[in-house]
Design a protein around this nucleic acid. Structure first.
Lengths: 136, 136
DNA sequence: CTACACCCTGTATTAAATACAGGGTAAAGA
DNA sequence: TCTTTACCCTGTATTTAATACAGGGTGTAG
């Protein structure tokens, strides 16, 4: 049996723990992705484990290419009083968005690797990549 | 035999032809990616086919994930005596970054679809997706 | 008790554009 | 010819997603 522990974090600790920049937290609070946390008497921010979870969620989503707006949509699943089926719909819409992004990135990757393979790699002024990019 | 033709473009035509936003051209001129074009008596910009090629080059490079700074580097190689292996290196680095992003996105997609499949889809406030997203 | 690490607020800067305000010009149609 | 429309000009402001810095306050270890 684990005893329920009340972990608290300052802004700096939260930043380190979640793997984001210190200032980024303030920014997320400003744009409403993160809630304004309670303060100590001296005005120091006082974060809980729930803040940490939320911040990690945001960071992961951002790393995966969601815009802050899209993350906001994902967080509505968490914050709002959505019925389960609505949540599932949002999840599937996001899965579709991700599928599109994967598709675009795969094209870019193929183009870059294809061009690099064509490239002689020497010091000649001929370069397949540049030639390709300059094609009309 | 083709007769050498001197095609000219206004800013709007150039934008349309190259597939970039009109204002973006001015921006590229401001940061030096595009040269300041000659003007008509009334001050209208007057672009040539070479401007068009260069602009398309920039657009494609941007689409492939190069930053404007990197494009600037690529253009130095176009403008001056470029080294093929340097160009290839940049392309391969970007291909690697893109591969990583694809990997992460695929994981996220699988997670979202998996969660959606688990979801009961009812109207209860319990939702496997939300639970999963909030895991530490 | 004094350093030093950390916290606070507010403002400025970054990249890569995009948008808008307030005009000038060119050319097609009446 | 006139006028309306479509396009061009410049300059400034806004956007997104942060990051950086200035000028202080606080809390704790030695």
């Amino acid at each position: 049996m684990t005893i329920s522990q009340k972990r608290e974090y300052t802004r700096g600790k939260l930043a380190k723990e979640a793997g984001v920049n210190l200032e980024t937290i303030r920014f997320y609070e400003k744009i409403g992705l993160m809630p304004d946390p309670p303060r100590t008497g001296a005005g120091y921010r006082c974060y809980s484990i729930d803040h940490l979870k939320r911040l990690k969620f945001i960071r992961r989503s951002r790393e995966l290419g969601f815009t802050n707006n899209e993350v906001s949509g994902l967080l509505e699943m968490v914050d709002g009083s959505y019925a389960c089926d609505e949540v599932r719909d949002i999840a599937l819409v996001n899965a579709g968005i991700i599928a599109g992004k994967i598709n675009d990135l795969a094209k870019m990757q193929a183009a870059l690797e294809g061009m690099a393979a064509e490239c002689s790699g020497g010091e000649t002024p001929d370069c397949a990549i540049i030639d390709r990019l300059l094609e009309e």
